[in-house]
């Protein structure tokens, strides 16, 4: 099965593991991810204003390019997913934005939100199936207590993202169980880590990610997995000493599928 793939800027530099293990795992699962040619950065945050057109265009280009290639578009980074999905929704539902974006880009064929944007986790759940994934696992992660960290971008706004129940999601927990590990459910798993504000207010990000770590730790988590490079950064930069290592979910996936190079994600070396 072939999918178009949008890695995003951070996956080419600071979050190479997120990208590399997603590709290796997809290959092992018989899925072909074809990186979109000449994709541009999504901008990291969804431009909410009704009159922001230019800031949405890089996303529209990626979406239109996937449409031209005839494949669904797979995303991996939570932020990219959020931006692409929300812009796609605008292109389908907001006539003003759709008209202006198309007028600006002058494409051969007008784009109206036709591309289906799916997150890598949705690919695992809906295309591969967690049951099938469990069968493909070569190294079950037995005995590990893993907490899913969704953050805010993967799920919200729920009416647009439509990945899972935004207040009580299960997709990553089901993923963890499919890999043979124990999923730790904790209430702060869908609350913000502090996001981009970390750049100028470390204190705020420290408090926010601290609340997440505290909640996970309290519920018995030994490690946390996430899909977002900025979440990983903020959780890792927390200075309150919770001692819960944070990984990309694809690292664990690759380990369980037996395609990971180097050591296991067991907290050592973090």
């Amino acid at each position: 099965m072939i999918f178009s793939y949008y890695p995003g800027c951070t996956l080419k530099t600071k979050a190479k593991e997120l990208d590399r293990y997603a590709r290796l795992s997809a290959e092992a699962l018989g899925i072909t991810l074809e990186e979109l040619p000449e994709w541009q950065c999504c901008g990291g945050v969804y431009p909410m204003a009704k009159d922001e057109i230019a800031t949405k265009l890089s996303s529209v280009r990626a979406l239109a390019s996937a449409k031209a290639l005839g494949h669904d578009l797979v995303t991996l980074c939570s932020a990219c997913h959020n931006v692409l999905k929300q812009v796609n929704h605008d292109m389908a539902a907001d006539e003003n934005i759709r008209t202006k974006a198309n007028n600006y880009m002058q494409p051969d064929e007008a784009y109206g939100g036709e591309t289906k944007v799916i997150h890598y986790l949705e690919l695992l759940r809906d295309t591969v199936g967690f049951g099938e994934l469990a069968k493909q696992v070569k190294n079950p992660l037995k005995g590990r207590k893993i907490a899913a960290y969704y953050g805010c971008l993967l799920l919200r706004p729920g009416s647009v993202l439509q990945m899972d129940n935004p207040e009580n999601p299960t997709i990553i927990e089901d993923f963890i169980r499919a890999l043979g590990a124990e999923a730790v459910v904790y209430p702060m798993r869908n609350e913000c880590c502090g996001g981009y504000v970390t750049l100028e207010n470390r204190e705020l990000a420290n408090r926010r990610s601290g609340a997440v770590l505290e909640s996970a730790k309290e519920c018995g988590a030994e490690m946390i997995i996430t899909a977002c490079p900025l979440c990983l950064y903020n959780l890792n930069k927390n200075t309150d000493g919770y001692d819960v290592p944070v990984y990309y979910f694809t690292e664990l996936l690759a380990e369980a599928l037996g395609v990971k190079e180097g050591g296991a994600c067991d907290g050592a070396g973090q």
Partner: peptide
């Protein structure tokens, strides 16, 4: 806005 069940059995 939110009720968070805590590990000690209370609800935040």
């Amino acid at each position: 806005g939110k009720v968070a069940p805590r590990a000690d059995g209370t609800l935040l």
